[in-house]
Design a protein around this nucleic acid. Sequence first.
DNA 1: TATGAATGAGTCTTCATTCAT
DNA 2: AATGAATGAAGACTCATTCAT
Lengths: 234, 234, 234, 234
Amino acid sequence: MARPPGHGPEYGVKRQEIIDQAAELFAKKGFAATSVAELSVVVGLAKGALYYYIGSKENLLVEIQDRVLGPLLVVAHKIAQLDEDAVFRLRLLSEALLTIILRRLHHVWVYEHDYRQLSGSNRSRLISQRREFESIVETLLRAAIQAGAFRSIDTRLAMLQFLNLHNHTYQWAHPDGAWDASYLSREYCSTFISGLRTRNYDVEALETRVVTFRAQHIEWTSEALLFTDHRVNS
Amino acid sequence: MARPPGHGPEYGVKRQEIIDQAAELFAKKGFAATSVAELSVVVGLAKGALYYYIGSKENLLVEIQDRVLGPLLVVAHKIAQLDEDAVFRLRLLSEALLTIILRRLHHVWVYEHDYRQLSGSNRSRLISQRREFESIVETLLRAAIQAGAFRSIDTRLAMLQFLNLHNHTYQWAHPDGAWDASYLSREYCSTFISGLRTRNYDVEALETRVVTFRAQHIEWTSEALLFTDHRVNS
Amino acid sequence: MARPPGHGPEYGVKRQEIIDQAAELFAKKGFAATSVAELSVVVGLAKGALYYYIGSKENLLVEIQDRVLGPLLVVAHKIAQLDEDAVFRLRLLSEALLTIILRRLHHVWVYEHDYRQLSGSNRSRLISQRREFESIVETLLRAAIQAGAFRSIDTRLAMLQFLNLHNHTYQWAHPDGAWDASYLSREYCSTFISGLRTRNYDVEALETRVVTFRAQHIEWTSEALLFTDHRVNS
Amino acid sequence: MARPPGHGPEYGVKRQEIIDQAAELFAKKGFAATSVAELSVVVGLAKGALYYYIGSKENLLVEIQDRVLGPLLVVAHKIAQLDEDAVFRLRLLSEALLTIILRRLHHVWVYEHDYRQLSGSNRSRLISQRREFESIVETLLRAAIQAGAFRSIDTRLAMLQFLNLHNHTYQWAHPDGAWDASYLSREYCSTFISGLRTRNYDVEALETRVVTFRAQHIEWTSEALLFTDHRVNS
DNA sequence: TATGAATGAGTCTTCATTCAT
DNA sequence: AATGAATGAAGACTCATTCAT
């Protein structure tokens, strides 16, 4: 992915814009069904100039995936390392995940649909990053069981249910619909956690703790976590 | 859906085979990224002969969708009209849905990924059939609430959770994995129904009733419901 | 163009029907733009059976041309050999030509448009037949000049004007329009002959002679001349 | 008629060259029977580059028609509005028409043969332009009758005779044959006008007036009228 | 930085024709 | 006498990519 060695300061900015416009197009028509020519029209640049920024069409796909998985893994690790109980961390993770899905709806759509079009190393890197996220979730679930909060269940299947419930949201969500990430997370977790918890675990208290936590750690807003720092080094 | 006016008895059979092989290819590579030439190699027919059976590439997509939605809607309506309580019917519907997903994994993959590539009337017909299924689910949820079995929740969001949980399964399921539709349905419903039920509703009893019901109505196995009759006239 | 050696008595009839239907199709859409499949639908025969009758697509074109040039040359020779003055024979020839154009409008359309699509010997035979007709016209014109009926003009150009005037009629004529061949011939010749005649030639008398001639020789109606005998040996 | 939004100054030139080469090919083989691949060989450009200029095959047909009808209608309107008697204007129109036919022989061939292959709006626009020309001719004929120069005839049929006589010329004319537009027009009009005139109208004087008119209005040469201005903005 | 022009492989689809039955 | 099935070449057109300027 080596970029032409020297380029001005605006290069990175314009590049991001192009990637985001590509994400929108790909989300609407599909990666394979969208032509570079269409993209060049939307971007307002001749095809030649476009290639100066994008390198190749597949490269665009890689960048789009990165804009989903990059922030997601960063925040997932941060949350996983918090000194809080597992169910609470799961609740935070849920909200972070939904935040990305809603805020980067187009990117997520592409991420879910077209990762199979990647080839070779791009593909394997992607798959291992997906596994990384899955294992974070599964670890939290295992911790919740060990802590006696969840029934003793198949953690892999529980993790898959968690992902099903959250990831499929991109199919019907609207970025500025009535339901925001915080609301959806509350509802999803209400279902999911109530469904798996033992009698010991107090679901009612969970949401109160989330509110409190957020008040005390403003920098821990999903929004902040996901998009502040990360936008720089992408 | 036969196209050319006259053709021999084997025409329909071969046609189905081609559609199923197309589903597998499309699932693996994506509809737009799969060429008719590739399909013709897999099928073992020259391109010309292939078109004799398929009419057009888009038409293949339509047929694949139909092989998912056709049986699904048939069985969904049958279940919805059963004289049983809503939660029980929801449990049966869950299993029917998962049965289709597992048994027609490739078709479902294509169904979930590439319906946007349909154009015009094909697309609108598909969308209205999807809505039809959604409304069956939502109606059952509403009935469950009215019967006092479920908490008073936003039925649309609950329906979407139900779909998320089930539909996304195609992403990771293997047709002959360890988990069959019956097991997955039990687990999903255990989560989903426990998550939404009131204290009145007895989840424990549900699975027992499913076993009993199945024993008394062999013709009500998901498998039977979905594929026996329908395979003939498709 | 050898036909399968033995075939029943209906063969020729059906063959003619197919050729005529082909002429209509080709006239409407153009020879190259009409597919054998379309023809087979119109004819109501599977493509295989069609080929039993037609041999090849190009062969159809040959037959269509023949159904124009065949009768035309037969009648042109008959008329040319009449023991009448040249202008009168020209008038009869005009009507015969227009009769074919109106009665075989589709065939003529194809004849005028698609003869260039013929290859090799088919093409050269056609061209020589066209020349044959042209030379008949030119001979009559030369005779008219020698008889003092026409001014001394370039006979080749006069012949071309005659053909222009008549042949182009296929472009706008309707087979059952208000103007029949007899009327059109009268009008065309009124223009053409008045334009070329010397003061000696009495145009007024010409039409009267045509009426008389026709009354005395019923078998000399253009219709009769062109289509009675010829239909048999085609 | 430039298609892609931005292109260099040579674009239009090359485009015209391609259109003219296409006209020649289409005239020889027929529009439907000529492949874009053949054209690309003649033009010396890969198919992809060819499409950069032509947009589509049908579009070529449109442009070819325009190169006939465009100049023709321009000059026809100019002539029709001259302050001269109707027969004289008809004579000028005849020469203008023949000039186009001889100078754009290939385009005219295509124009006469393949307009039916146009679809939708292209087709209806073409047909209405053809009607426009026809109505100019018919109007002149009507004026000639009212002025007492022509006998009282069916003007529609007379117009069709005029068109037959002129238009069919493309079938046998050679661009650098012995007969130029001026000569052909004189001959055609000698036939046509002599054929339709009353005793009042002095045909002999007509050609003298044409010579005088041309001397006084050099810019009124058919050549000049048709191709000087128009070639620029086409 | 940006562009217009060019390419050649590849897209879906249609075609005239053949042939076993 | 007729058919359904098959073919392979060719059809129009699009694509991702390159490169001189």
